[in-house]
């Protein structure tokens, strides 16, 4: 299963480290990463793969949200199918 991690907020040092730390803990593999500004927000987006992981999306999401709160940005993860359904015909 593939999922999209998104970080929305202010750019600052340590964001990639925080996100990749959580993902590494859950053995989730990062396959793509990009950073840019969208709708006036700093955004970092990662495509990740759960093939090597035993965790559920909800568990990873909770840990990412906590990590985000610690550094003051909004981090979440969502199933890739949600974006595919909404943005691809």
């Amino acid at each position: 299963m593939k999922a999209i991690v998104s970080v929305i907020g202010l750019d600052m040092p340590g964001i990639v480290a925080a996100v990749s730390g959580v993902l590494a803990q859950h053995k989730v593999n990062i396959t793509d990463i990009s950073q840019s500004y969208a709708q006036e927000f700093f955004t970092m987006i990662m495509v990740v793969d759960f093939e090597t992981s035993n965790s559920t999306l909800k568990e990873v999401d909770q840990d990412l949200k906590e990590a985000g709160e610690t550094i003051g940005v909004f981090i979440s993860i969502q199933h890739e199918d949600v974006f595919r359904a909404m943005h691809r015909i």
């Binding site: 999209i4 998104s6 929305i8 793509d32 990009s34 840019s36 500004y37 969208a38 709708q39 927000f41 955004t43 987006i45 495509v47 909004f74 979440s76 969502q78 890739e80 949600v82 974006f83 909404m86 943005h87």
Partner: peptide
Amino acid sequence: MSFTPEEVVETKLM
């Protein structure tokens, strides 16, 4: 990247 940042942010904010 399979989705643009705008698309991802739009969905997340919704």
